[in-house]
Design a protein around this nucleic acid. Structure first.
Lengths: 249, 249
DNA sequence: CGACATCTTGACTACAGTCAATACTAGTGG
DNA sequence: CCACTAGTATTGACTGTAGTCAAGATGTCG
């Protein structure tokens, strides 16, 4: 854990928090939030910064408030697989275990609402609203991970890219509270390398397949990190799967 | 859910249950077990039988007592990916959701200790020993799923087979309460097809890589479903990963 | 024995990976 | 303002791993 990111008491009250209705605290009542407010703090990491190394102790747990972080594992020879993407309201860390089994990296500037682990463990032991919500979120993440296993094990490079874009388009629409329709424009946030690590591909294959989808008219690129989807149904079809793409919880 | 597998009240008392110390009930005290005893029942499925279809409602949840079951997803064109293997003490189903997102199939004859979902939801709402244990088990499964993502996304066919065998050898040794050493012999339980579905390969590639490992002296085959590992460390090395292979929880 | 499942092996193909050159973008400093 | 650099992205040529198609071997059960 870096040392230059000093914990800071929040000036944001929980009731005004942007992730209030989706995070681990979302089932809490006002008086329960007050308790959290007393022990939470905010921590911000810059894009590219490593938040935790695989195997190293991690003294805190907490929720993403803004930005995106990645979880990944690396083989001794350098091959890397991303195993999770944390968006706002997603939870990092696990009660009852000291070390993260994953490298955690800030994909963009990212702010967490954190608790020291012993403190958080006391909270979940005494507050069923938090522990129930954490169980719910963990089950959702498990479903997401399994959905991703299907993609990694059985989908073609083209389907993988289409699938990723469909998910990101949907998430972007949801965040903007706009309908998931055609002509949707969304930012990628992550580099080609991060996409490759997430999809189990190389950056060259990612690049080629994005170009192929563009030539096929399935997507348009406003710039290399901004995608427009003229026909969402066609993109979904290309993802090889009629599923809603209910990944990332 | 099949209709010819009639629920049966148990004649096995919880305190004598073989999965007593690992299952979702493992943190319970004697009087809590009594309550479970009143509402649990046993259900047995035959090898090859489908326990639940993806998307169909599943009225029960429960723990594997004996045998092995598989969770898998299938794409519209028939490509299939196994996303979980359930061994004794593993839990099937999720509170708060009616439909299984996976096909659940009995890989061997398999017996579950089941609860009707509404009943189980009442239990976890009122019994922290159960809900805490369920959270713990779900977090372990999430780690396993992510470990598997690394295998599916980044490992070669040879590494995948070596990894699977290393895990099965370890599990078999643990079940027999014998040390994980050299000369270990273990049964595969599952067909080449099931291995292929789990590893994101074809049966032909599975077969070829098993033959290659045999020719390289890394394994010996007593018959096509029984493997001997003369040098466990070498097998682990071939799996491309120094991890303990702490998969399957 | 015959029928059916499962498994192995061979020949060929194709999809994604590797290696390499080039283009694009943003940031820095003269 | 332009030159320079470093990081990111695209494209091409070639290779290699795993997939496909097909024939046969092995094993199990009636």
């Amino acid at each position: 854990m870096r040392t230059d990111a000093s914990p800071a008491k929040s000036d944001v009250r929980c009731v005004d928090c942007p992730i209030r209705h989706r995070a681990v605290c979302s089932h809490c009542e006002p008086r329960e939030l007050e308790r959290l407010e007393g022990v939470k703090s905010y921590r911000t990491y810059r894009q590219g910064e490593t938040i935790a190394w695989a195997g190293e102790p991690m003294a805190i747990v907490g929720s993403v408030v803004r930005g995106v972080a990645t979880l990944s594992r690396t083989l001794p020879d350098g091959r890397r697989q991303m195993v999770g993407l944390l968006f706002p309201s997603d939870f990092l860390g696990r009660p009852g275990r000291n070390a993260s089994p994953y490298d955690v990296v800030a994909a963009t500037d990212v702010t967490f609402c954190v608790f020291r682990r012993p403190e958080f463990e006391r909270i979940i032991a005494s507050n069923p609203h938090v522990s129930e919500r954490l169980l719910e979120m963990t089950l959702d993440e498990l479903d997401s991970a399994r959905e991703w296993m299907l993609l990694l094990g059985r989908k073609t490079a083209r389907e993988k890219i289409a699938n990723l874009f469909a998910i990101m388009a949907r998430r972007s629409a949801e965040d903007a509270a706009s309908p998931v329709g055609d002509g949707l424009v969304f930012p990628l946030y992550i580099t080609r390398e991060a996409m490759a690590d997430y999809l189990g591909l190389t950056i060259e294959t990612v690049s080629r397949q994005i170009s192929a989808l563009r030539r096929a008219g399935l997507i348009e690129l406003e710039d290399s990190r901004t995608v427009r989807v003229p026909d969402f149904a066609r993109l979904l079809e290309e993802a090889g799967d009629d599923s809603d793409g209910v990944v990332f919880s």
